[in-house]
Design a protein around this nucleic acid. Structure first.
Length: 275
DNA sequence: ATAGCTACCTGGGCGC
DNA sequence: TGCGCCCAGGTAGCTA
């Protein structure tokens, strides 16, 4: 959705300039802010692509403008009279008379980098696996990779080199749908169960995108800044104490990987022996 | 090599 | 009312 919004608003346009308001937003552009601003200016945007939580703008000359959204990064189409948003990190203006594009990021885990000659696949993300919504994504290959891991299933789902695009929220929702406890060992799950889990993850992502993303934390909002309603359809994530939508048992919350995991203790029983 | 842990960062929400 | 603390989470980079 973010990508489609950007495709609609930036493809075909020539960047007049980018103004970086926060050095941290370009910390991955090693040559620094001034170099970033100079490198980006003047390029025309040919396409916008995505892998996991990364987006990159394909520029003329084969260069890439890579954006990582972190957990709170957003692109927004600016209206000319709006006061700058407090989380504004960079603003793109264009050679035409159209609206500018803002990169916002509250918690500053995200950032931008200009990567010359890396339009096809920027080097920082070559190690990322495809995500379940990518047309070239291979379910069976991913099932095999997951089942080869001797690690808890949620840890594997969050490993972006195995499958990308699944964060803490989507992982908990997919596990709930597939009735799998987060602590079960990946190599102990049957092929059909892992398949079910990946299908559930793809469904969660599809639904979230259709609704404009989770408005929880404004994590994903569409490019116009409209927040989604996905959070209202969450069955497990953030729902501790509330009844499981399937069986009515109160949803439980547990700490895992320095994060929270939410699950239904009846539909998603804990493994007897945690490994 | 691989698995697992921690730091990074900000501001909304909460308790006092 | 206001201060201070907790918490959220993707991932680079570290250790074991």
């Amino acid at each position: 959705m973010v990508r489609l919004g950007l495709v609609q608003h930036v493809v075909g346009r020539s960047i007049e300039r980018v103004t970086v308001l926060s050095d941290r937003a370009v910390r991955r552009h090693v040559a620094g802010r001034a170099d970033f601003e100079a490198a980006v200016a003047g390029h025309r945007v040919l396409d916008v692509r995505r892998r996991g939580k990364y987006l990159w703008w394909v520029l003329d000359d084969g260069d890439a403008l890579l954006a990582h959204l972190g957990m709170s990064g957003q692109f927004r189409i600016g209206s000319p009279d709006a006061a700058p948003h407090p989380h504004l990190r960079a603003r793109f203006t264009f050679a035409d008379a159209g609206p500018h594009v803002d990169f916002l990021d509250q918690r500053t885990f995200g950032g931008l980098a200009f990567l010359p000659g890396q339009a096809d696949l920027p080097e920082p993300i070559v190690h990322l696996a495809l995500d379940p919504l990518d047309p070239d994504y291979d379910v069976e290959a991913t099932v095999a990779r997951i089942r080869a891991k001797r690690s808890e299933i949620k840890r594997v789902l969050l490993d972006q080199t195995v499958v990308s695009g699944i964060g803490n929220i989507y992982a908990d929702e997919a596990l709930w749908r597939a009735r799998v406890n987060y602590a079960r060992s990946a190599d102990a799950l049957s092929r059909p169960v892992v398949r079910r889990l990946l299908i559930a993850a793809a469904e969660v992502m599809t639904e979230a995108l259709a609704m404009g993303g989770t408005s929880f934390d404004a994590l994903y909002v569409n490019v116009n800044g409209a927040s989604g309603y996905f959070d209202r359809s969450l069955a497990a994530y953030g729902q501790q104490g509330r009844p499981c939508p399937r069986c009515g048992t109160p949803i439980r919350r547990e700490a895992f990987m320095n994060r929270s995991s939410f699950y239904c203790p009846k539909c998603q029983p804990r493994p007897r022996v945690s490994r």
